[in-house]
Amino acid sequence: MSAAASTETVAPLLSVEHLRIVAAARRREDLLVEDVSFAVHAGEFLGIVGESGCGKSMTALSMLGLLPGPNVRASGGRVLFDGQDILTMGGSSLRHLRGNDVAMIFQDPMSSLNPVQTIGEQIVETILLHEKIGRERAWARAVELLAEVNIPAAAQRARDYPHQLSGGMRQRVMIAMAIACKPRLLIADEPTTALDVTIQAQILELLDRLRRERGMAVILITHDLGVIAEYADRVLVMYSGRIVERAEVASLFAQPLHPYTHGLLGSVPPLEEEVDELVAIEGQPPSPGAWPSGCRFQPRCPQSRPECASWSVRLIESEPDHAAACILHEHGETSHAD
């Protein structure tokens, strides 16, 4: 898309290189994320999609240095924001980054707000953490932000506690809080899963509008390919801790390269109907620690062959800006049966 094409020469805002995340379990380490590399440019809308447990949230949390310690940690690679490696950042640089340059909204707006503070106070806190302005001006800003995310009667609502708001309203509050300090990157980890369908669409429209107006980059994690088709410029498909396909949205839907993506799209006519769950593929993804050697999709792959078990998995770029991690593309074949 235009955003990606025009930023080709500009240094990316965020660049993840060979990210590897492990979880310490009793006497061993489970790999959660392996060799994940991608870049996000200013103003770009990147989608990340994949089944539950494939490492989407862990990848996202590492961009804020927020991996759930002490047992989960990044054990390799780099996460460069503006050229600075977040993984090795010290406490004060990290605090400066969080909420200020990179903001995040989470899946469950019901539990993500502090129940004993008014929503106004919670937004004010974010502002005061990063800007030297008076409390009153910060409060006025908080009210403006609430209005900007379409909360009616914002001045009164600012004095409400989270339990007085509906789920959709709370997610708007989370967004208002996230954009309070004009972050350059907003990560939304399944922001609409807990909400009903009409509210979902409103929230996504809101995110997209803010991206356009403010020129911030958005990373949206979702299970919903319909959402990806509608909003994202580029998309990463993850499976068992790896990126298995990376593409511009149009080419992903026009010509999925990886058998897993193909399966995901199986029940979705490209660019039309929406699906709520990724149920097209039979079987369950293996859990971390139980991954097969070689290609991890192999037990469920309709096109698997004996070599897949020993193949050294890597993304293979078969067109510009379209890569898949499948042995079939090493030999110039496509995964299409038709």
Binding site: G99, M104, S112, T126, M177
Partner: peptide, 8 residues
């Protein structure tokens, strides 16, 4: 976690 993500 939200409080941490704010930069507190």
């Amino acid at each position: 976690r939200t409080a941490r993500a704010k930069g507190g």
